[in-house]
Design a protein around this nucleic acid. Structure first.
Lengths: 136, 136
DNA sequence: CTGTGTGCAAACACTTTGCAGGTGT
DNA sequence: ACACCTGCAAAGTGTTTGCACACAG
């Protein structure tokens, strides 16, 4: 599905900013921050429009938000094959890229009594394959 | 160990703001945000001093920083019994409290090939025991 | 006494809100 | 035509930096 199809499928208007965000995320392996999304065309859309579009896309489960340990926020496309609830994220501290790991997640802790858990987020940090091979 | 002992043990000067932060975190079950720490005495120390003290305490492994999915930051005391690297955090969406779960963590994903992992962070979200019993 | 911590002012980055005008359907 | 999206201005929040003074060791 391309950007226009995705938007139509979610009954959202097919606007420039939304299409642009979806396309940037579709053509990119890793999750992107707002600034990284805008990198190719920095002044095409207003900052505010970006925030509102990102919010809309997130609310409609087209993208998901990833918050790193240093508080930076990145976004990634939701893929059917990789349900948001069930995958972990990998943050490479060398190149700062964030990847959705497509492997299914297991419950990481033995659930303590009395807590009711709605969602689990897992963030791995380390070095990604590209950086490991580069730094030989 | 009390606040002064902790600071001395880490070769840090025994200053008011540092003592205050450590004491607030020691006397509290849950992790606290900057604003929550300051709640009891809002104007005792400058905002900037808080940030610098929090940074120092974090760098010296006296406290650790927890970033929630909504980007808010909380801090918790490092306990010997609960190594930072090995415990998960629980965020109650009802009362907004954050708890360090003292149970040992298992590796949540089957490690994909080629990635080198330094650290794992796990954030559970849901409802805490107190809120569950209250809302009967 | 000396190096470090603190307070104040200012700047910066990120995000939200209100409103007027433009656009998709 | 109408609802909704966008751009601009402005404000709010969280955080950092520079500098002069104060304080702990």
């Amino acid at each position: 599905m391309n950007a226009e199809q995705i938007l139509k499928h979610h009954n959202l208007k097919n606007t420039g900013c939304r299409k642009f965000i979806i396309n940037e995320l579709l053509t990119n392996e890793s999750a992107l921050s707002e600034n990284e999304i805008k990198k190719t065309l920095p002044d095409l859309f207003d900052r505010v429009t970006f925030y509102r579009s990102l919010k809309t896309l997130e609310e409609n489960n087209i993208i998901h938000r990833i918050v790193l340990h240093d508080s930076t926020v990145k976004y990634a496309i939701n893929k059917e094959a990789v349900p948001v609830a069930d995958h972990a994220h990998f943050h490479c501290k060398k190149c700062d890229s964030v990847t959705c790991l497509e492997t299914q997640m297991q419950m990481p802790v033995s659930l303590p009594a009395g807590f009711s858990v709605d969602s689990v987020e897992v963030l791995l940090e380390g070095t990604c394959p590209e950086c490991i091979t580069k730094n030989v």
